[in-house]
Every structure is written in C-alpha cells, then in structure tokens.
Amino acid sequence: MRRLLAVLLENEAGALSRVIGLFAQRNYNIESLTVAPTEDPTLSRLTLLTEGDDEKIEQVTKHLNRLIEVVKVNDLTDGAHIERELMLIKIRAEGNGHREEIYRTCRIFRGDVVDVTPDSYTVQLTGPTKKLYAFMRAIGETSILEVVRTGVSGIGRGDKILEL
C-alpha cells in the first residue's frame, strides 16, 4: 500500500542522513522524498513516499520516532490530504504544428512554459503525481527530452495541522 509520511525534523546537519540511513538499514523503501525548512527555521519538514502494509508502516513510524532528531511523524494517507509534485519537463517542439500542439496540451494541463528555444519548450507543471504522468503520456515519449520531478509534498486537509 502506498503511504505518504509527513515528518518534522530538527533542522540540523546530519539529521536527514539518519532518516535515509534508517530506511536503508531496516530494508524499507523510499519512493520519493522532499525536504525543506518550515516557517520555523529550526525545523525541517519531510514528505516521504513509501510502500507497506499497516504493520510495516507502524514499524517505520516507530523507528522514525526513535531517531532523536525526529520531532513528529504523521501518516498523511490515514486521512484526507493534498499531494502536490512539481515537474520541469523539456519537450521537443519543432515546426509550427508540433509547437502549437505541445503548447495546447500544456495549457490543458495548466502547465507554464518557462523557457523556449526554436526547437524546445521547458514546461513547469504542478499537481498530484497522476497528473504528471498523464501529461507525459499526452506529450508522448518521443517528444520528451528531459524530466525532473521534486517528489511528492503533502499536507492534511482541513484545520488539522502537524505541529510540535
């Protein structure tokens, strides 16, 4: 089962390596990982996408909590939540017809063209992972030159917040 964990972590050198080390050491899987400081500069927030049944996720959560620098762990997939990922994608766009087609598709997906050359567009697209895949399918493999994705960030819906 796909799980999205939100982790508040002391914003200290070496803290992230302990989280990653734990996953390697205990044979847990990391699908994607995003991390950056929060509004409180002493805290970083991680969003970690992993895979596992309830028992496994319980163990992952417990072991994360055991790390001294981990302040809080929350399984976002337990409740309603929002997931977003940002993708920068460089697309071959040659000849008027093709360029227009790419641009139209981009607008349908609410992407922004952030860089242009005579032969390519670089598009910025935000959304749930599924939407990014859908866009890539719509563009077609042969037109995609380069893809970079941030990995998933997530936040709970409603008034509930992850705090100390």
Partner: peptide, 11 residues
C-alpha cells in the same frame, strides 16, 4: 521501554 520493540517480531 522501546515502542519499536513491541510487535516487531511477535504481535
């Protein structure tokens, strides 16, 4: 004392 030890091997 360690929650991670509980139900790690035997529920």
């Amino acid at each position: 004392v360690d929650p991670a030890s509980i139900s790690k091997v035997i529920p």
